[in-house]
Design a protein around this nucleic acid. Sequence first.
DNA 1: TTGCAATAATTGTATATACCAGCATAGACT
DNA 2: AGTCTATGCTGGTATATACAATTATTGCAA
Lengths: 249, 249
Amino acid sequence: MKRPAKLSQVPLSRQIKDFIIDGVSSGELAPGDRIPSEAELAKQFSASRMTVNRAVSELTVEGRLNRVQGLGTFVAEFKPLAPLFEVRSIAKEIADQGHEHSSIPLKSERGPATKQEAGRLEVPVGTEILKLQVLHLSDGKPIQIEARLVVPKFAPEFLDQDYSETTASDYLQRTVQFTEVEHKLDAVAAGPEFGRLLEIDEITPCLRLVRRTWLRDDIITYVQLIHPGGAFRFTGRFKGPGNVTDVPF
Amino acid sequence: MKRPAKLSQVPLSRQIKDFIIDGVSSGELAPGDRIPSEAELAKQFSASRMTVNRAVSELTVEGRLNRVQGLGTFVAEFKPLAPLFEVRSIAKEIADQGHEHSSIPLKSERGPATKQEAGRLEVPVGTEILKLQVLHLSDGKPIQIEARLVVPKFAPEFLDQDYSETTASDYLQRTVQFTEVEHKLDAVAAGPEFGRLLEIDEITPCLRLVRRTWLRDDIITYVQLIHPGGAFRFTGRFKGPGNVTDVPF
DNA sequence: TTGCAATAATTGTATATACCAGCATAGACT
DNA sequence: AGTCTATGCTGGTATATACAATTATTGCAA
């Protein structure tokens, strides 16, 4: 029953991949669960086993599945490669460690970029940007100040939204695979203003993380000032030979 | 000319992948270069085109190659996913920014783990470990103190080597694809001892990065204390949907 | 010279088939 | 009861084939 090689809009192997990915993200498939065997999927999609094999293999290379010969294919524990870079990693870490996370918006406005802000974003002074500043609390105690500057070239309508729940997934779905990021990490004294907000002495060392992200044509700048007690843990997962050889001995 | 399905020790597709990877790492193939077409490789390896296709596709998923329909396959600009985690990122950054990097070994000894060291490595107190401490200089000025603790279960012979040039690539070659890493970032005052070494006031804020790596059965712990002036930049590249959706809006 | 059509080369996708290798279990044998 | 073996499921690898889609080039016609 040789099927004519007419290609639909979306390749069959892509459909199979999406089917599995959707199952995971919807919660039907949890990490550790076994997914249907290649033969079952092939029947279900009227595809040949090789097509299924290709789809599943790619998901394995991507780290989403683990395959065991003789046993089956299982949903992998999916850890983002570098959770440090998540939006709400601080909030998540706080929550994961059993503390209660809350936040107080300090600033949320749009307006022309000042000289300093423009410098951070590498845009002309006066460009209309979104400026946000949030104080994060752990069990009611101030722990981090987060400042965010956004040049919303791509979707100005997001300017009016409550930013706190907005993530890239809202407007990007598996479209962009790569994102350039530049980070700068250093330690600074809290200083009078932030020291007061964080309820610490102004000479207290704080961690400052400046992150610039290029996503398509947009530039996003983050500044996080983290209270020393707010040191956070995160686990990362490296993938691929390029990292293996970079792992320190 | 159907080849019998006798499998050699190393799968053919693996051999083809290695051939390309070797070409890149030896410099024969530079980023941007076109690699031989699937048909050529198939002839060269006496393989079917599908086998070549599989090998090359996997390298594409892994981010090492870019394929363009109708044109060919090209070596990708390969950027490590998270250069922050490289051993010598500080040294590299210093060099890249046109400064001269040098280092002074402060400590290099093996012996039983103290309580604190054992705690960091999660091994019993008294376990024989390797302890290293190095002061990094930029243009002759102290900029970072690096401490490294290694539990060398895997290859005790490395204990006697000069650690500075030793990387994981010396004993691992494309064997381990995944490595778990835990990081802890915080900011601390330099303190009297390190303040003196770094030639700064003891209350000066410093960045401290603690990194634990699990590589096979081994545990490696890093502690980096970075001078505030030694704030470093790095660019990262994210790959895969898991990160796309995590990229902050 | 410009514009368009045909062509060759390349990757993209899919099928059907074959056999190998790892794992668990049912059943026979001791 | 314990042990071995056969069987069937699973993924792992490889081949041969076919046609689609994209790209650059070539050559012809206006």
